[in-house]
Every structure is written in structure tokens, then in C-alpha cells.
Nucleic acid binder design. Structure first.
Lengths: 334, 334
DNA sequence: TTGTACGCGTTATCAT
DNA sequence: ATGATAACGCGTACAA
């Protein structure tokens, strides 16, 4: 079924069919109904390719993320997909891992598929050294670029993020003010948001004259391995004499590692050791005791990002950067 | 940059450019190099719309799932996306929730986007009553349909699944043979695989002359709520006098609910109560003690599904149904 | 309000 | 081996 067939069966021209299709008001009610009926009867659907060819847009946005099975990213992808679909946009998903080469390769692939915009999901798309980010600039020359959870200042690049710096700073200070002194920070990423968080912790410790101790956990293919690594790292740290009465983690899964450590070491939570996670994911509640965790407002961020994107695609101006505050959700581990 | 521009700059016809593009062997090495050079210089990329219009295929498959943020589905989507991309296919992701109307609506949407096939991820796409599945038949009239984790017998529909029936049956028997008598089954889905699992439990109990006790937990928007509901349900059950010395769950998150219940009730795991989960997800290891859980071979299933799909799209014949056995992974809760 | 005709960028079928 | 040209299905000036 093409627009031709419909026009013939309805006894009108293809132009009229096209007008009906696109909701033009220059069609008489009678003609519209006639055409609509025929379309209905033959359950006609316009050809997306032909339409795209003429319009040069597919009403599709490319979603790029490192790993859509990561708890946090999966949630983000889910929100984005739902919200974009509500606005009439489809999503092509592309998981590109954590290395630069693939980020570039897959961005281009998405562009070649004629997406209207690219959404980078996760702060790992913005790195510390400027050259590694030039691919973002390149894309932004032709397409609006949206970044979730990181900021990159360039024309046509728009960011929605949580104030991770202050969130961690405040979480750490909360521990300090409740009397904890030996607070360890555990992280697994040096991305944009990763370094903000780290700085938040450092500043809090320094301000209060406490010694900062940080541990970096390598990202592992299996989350479960990351949890185990965290537990082991803490065990090693303690057995080498380091005192610990609190752990701030850049991630809920790291926090679960800390919980595992505490359990194995026979420490009671939160009396002997307090633990704070990040993301306020389902992991926080799945555990017993439940994790105190920073909620970084993912749903809100996604909603804002999608709204912004729609605005931009319709030609409106929007702020380059939108920031929300994190929220410390207190539960059983503090 | 179009094929025209390239042909002009290379001093050949568009037909030749097209041949180079598609790797035809009817181009002299010299001409090929010349054209390739021009393409390279102008970093030309063929227009996906025009190509699709001619070929009527986009090398894209539609992935339909209820909720891509669900732990299990997210992992599946991730595997599928990676593996399909390896084979040169893109994925349009579409999350349609659990109701029939949206399944149909979004399937059609994907078809209108000219996907080459639709992959249904999750057993919830096949329901008990036949009418609810007719939409699958409809799609299969024009496109190969792949189903992950459920089976539906119809032409042009192919399934990859785990033998959930036997997996649960054996898990239950394992508990029975280790002396447990009051084994409760907890589930949250009556989908294809959901009912297989349930039957596996029932059969095991009946065979050994034990009384089956099952509890259905409503799916909740937040996983954490589901965990809490499970814990509460078990509390209610016990306080009304039902004895429990083991719990088999259709899902790891339900199992975490059981763990939560045990903790709150002061029961020690696994001495007082044994718990078995399903999916062998990260939740199994995130917890302490770690969950004994059935591994339903997701990665294997996805790999097989993708291989099958590629075969079909290239015109080969493949078996309608591929079944793998589940694997009981024993850990701390049994 | 409606219709005609062309362009969008490919692929594929012919010739040559 | 290469080139000319007709599809592919739609949107849209422009004409009526």
C-alpha cells in the first residue's frame, strides 16, 4: 500500500492523501473522511524511508550508553525511551562500552542512521582531557547533543545533571558531624561526575582537618565481581592497620561491597561502621539493612532532558546546562 | 555529499560509485581505488533513507520488551544489542509495558519503521489465552518473529528458551531431598515461563506427597516495593500459622524479599529457612549470604537467538524452538 | 480546495 | 567494466 494506491481508491490525488496524512487544514472534511476511510480499510502505513528521504529526519534519536545493563544506565535508558516515545520519537539504542574509539565509531553510526539528535547517557562520555571530547564538538556541528549526567561546554551541546559535588560533600559532612573520623571513599570511575564526587569528599575531609583515604575499584564485567573486589579491598586496608568507621561510595554496588566487608569482619552496621551509597537504586532497598544513599534524581533529569530536546528540535532556545540537587536518603546503614 | 557528488569528483557514473559502495566485483581495481579515495576525502556516508527506500530494509531489528530497566530484561537487551551490532544490525528499542494493547501498538510502530524482524524479549509476550497471542501470528505473516524465553507455535515464529519447568522442579526436589517439608513457592508472573515454573514446583511437591503453598506477588513499579511486599506476605503467612522451612522464588528479587523476611523474623539462613532464587542475577551475589539461584543461561539464549535470526534473514532454515537447561547455582542460602 | 510534477539518494536493470 | 535510467514512496512548490 502506497500513497498512490490510496489516492486511486479514494478518487483523489496523492497530494490530497499526503495532506490528510500530515493533518493539513486545507482539506475539506468530506474528502478527509473519504481518504481516512480508505486508509483504515487497507490499514495503510506511510513508508518511513520515503518520508525520511524527503524530510531528512526520522523522528528518531540515538541513545548512546556504555552498558545498558548497568543498573543506573538501564533506568536512564528506560526513562528516556518512554518519555521520547510519548513525544513521538523513536530511539535507536547503542551500547558502546567505555573506550573512546567505540564512542566515536558508534556516534557516527547513529548519525548515518539519520537520528535527529544524540543523547549521551552517563558521565563517562566527558573525560578530563580535552582532546578526548572533541568528538562531541564534531557531532554538535550538525546535531544537537544532549548529555545526561555530565557537562561539556560547547555550542549546541546541552547538559542535564545532578550536583554530585555537593551531594557527596554533604553526605561526608553528615558523617563527620555525627562523629565519624575515619571515613573512606570508594569509587570506580574518573569520569566527569566521578571526579566531581571525589572532589566533594576531599573538600569535606580537608575542611574538617581529617585525613582522606580513597580506594579505586576497577570496573569489572560482572557487577558481582565489583562487589567482591570492594569487600576485599576494604579487608586488605583494615588488615594493614587502617582504621575505618565510615565508608562513602560513589555507587550503590560499591556500598554493597562495603556491607559485605562489614558482615565478614563481624562489624555491626551502623554502630561500628556507617555506609553511604550513591544512586539510590533498587540495591539500596534490596539489602538488609537498607542502604543510606544519595538520590541523584534520575527521573527528573531524564524528563528535563527530553523536554529540552523537544524544545531544541522545534527551534526554541534553552539553557545550556540544567542542574538539580542530590538528595540524601537516610536508611539503615547510617 | 551524495553519490552524485562523488561520481562527479571521481569522474565516473553513479552506478560505479554504487557498485564500489556495495562491494561488487565488477569494478576495476583502479576505478575502485579512485572512488574510494574521493569518498574518504569527503568522508561520504550513504543516505540510509534512500538506501532503505530501494532495498526496503534497514538492517534494523525491533526489540520489544516490557521494561528495559528490569534487571533481567536489561541484561537481555544488552546482550542482544551487542550481538546484533556485531552482525551489522541496529536495534530500535521499544518498551511497551505489560498490557496487550501496547504490545500491539508498539509492534506496529516498529514494523512501520521497517525493521527486518521483531524480537520479543521476555515470556510475558506469550499468554495463556490464545486470542491474546494472535498479534504475534499477524506479525509473523510478514516478518520473522523471535521470542526470548517463551514459546509460541506458529509459522515464522522462533523461540529460544530455558527449560524453566525442569529447573524449578529440580530446585524444589533438591530442597525436598535435603529434608525440607514446608516449601513455599513465590511468583509474580503468570506468563509462559511463569506458569512453567509454577507447574515445576507443583509437580515436585505432589510427587513427594507434600502440600504445595503458593503466593502471588503483584508486580510493582518499584522493585524495592516488590521486595517489601514479599517480606510482608511471608510474615503474614507465618503469623497465621503456616510453617515454612524453605522458599522457592520465581525471581531473585522475590528471593531477596524472602531473605528480608528471614532477617526480620530472626530466622537463620539456611539452617531455619532455605531460599532459592531465579535468574542468577547480580542480586544473588550482592546479598550476604549470597543467594542460591537458578541460572537460566541468558547469554547463551541471546547468542543463539541472534545467530538464528541472522540465519533466517539470509534465507536459511532453522529449528522453531531451541531449549537450554537451567543450572542450579548453589550459594549461601541453601 | 485540489491536482501535477519534480526532487530526495539509492539500487538495479538494462545497454554498451 | 562502465554508464544511462527507471524505480522506490513521499512531500511540496506551483498551477488550476
Amino acid at each position: 500500500m502506497t500513497i498512490y494506491d490510496i489516492s486511486q481508491k479514494a478518487g483523489v490525488s496523492i497530494a490530497t492523501v499526503s495532506r490528510v496524512l500530515n493533518g493539513s487544514d486545507k482539506v475539506s472534511a468530506k474528502t478527509r473522511k473519504k481518504v481516512l476511510d480508505v486508509m483504515e480499510r487497507y490499514s495503510y502505513t506511510p513508508n518511513a524511508f520515503a518520508r525520511g528521504l524527503g524530510l531528512n529526519t526520522s523522528h528518531t534519536v540515538g541513545i548512546l550508553c556504555a552498558d545498558s545493563s548497568d543498573l543506573y544506565l538501564a533506568k536512564a535508558v528506560y526513562y528516556l525511551e518512554q518519555m521520547l516515545r510519548d513525544k513521538g520519537y523513536d530511539c535507536i539504542l547503542c551500547c558502546c562500552g567505555y573506550n573512546l574509539e567505540n564512542k566515536i565509531k558508534y556516534s557516527n553510526l547513529l548519525l548515518s542512521k539519520k537520528v535527529d539528535s544524540i543523547v549521551f547517557v552517563g558521565s563517562n562520555f566527558v573525560e578530563a582531557n580535552e582532546e578526548s571530547n572533541s568528538y562531541i564538538r564534531d557531532i554538535a556541528c550538525t546535531h544537537p547533543v544532549m548529555i545526561l549526567n555530565a557537562d561539556y561546554a560547547a555550542p549546541n551541546v546541552y547538559s542535564c545533571l545532578c550536583d554530585d559535588y555537593h551531594a557527596v560533600l554533604e553526605a561526608t559532612e553528615e558523617l563527620i558531624s555525627s562523629g565519624r573520623k575515619n571515613i573512606i571513599y570508594i569509587y570506580n570511575s574518573t569520569s566527569y561526575s566521578g571526579s566531581k564526587k571525589l572532589t566533594g569528599y576531599m573538600d569535606a575531609m580537608n575542611t574538617h582537618g581529617l585525613t582522606a583515604v580513597t580506594e579505586f575499584i576497577d570496573r569489572r564485567y560482572e557487577v558481582s565481581d565489583e562487589i567482591l573486589d570492594t569487600a576485599k579491598t576494604l579487608e586488605g586496608l583494615c588488615s594493614s592497620g587502617t582504621k575505618v568507621d565510615a565508608v562513602v561510595c560513589a555507587d550503590d554496588q560499591l556500598a554493597l561491597g562495603a556491607v559485605k566487608f562489614a558482615r565478614r569482619a563481624g562489624l555491626s552496621i551502623p554502630q561500628d561502621i556507617a555506609i553511604i551509597g550513591y544512586n539510590n537504586s533498587m540495591l539500596a532497598v534490596s539489602n538488609e539493612p537498607e542502604l543510606t544513599s544519595v538520590d541523584n534524581r534520575l527521573e527528573l533529569l531524564c524528563k528535563q532532558l527530553v523536554n529540552n530536546l523537544i524544545e531544541i528540535l522545534s527551534g526554541a532556545e534553552i539553557p545550556r546546562k540544567t542542574i538539580y540537587s542530590g538528595l540524601l536518603v537516610k536508611r539503615g546503614t547510617t
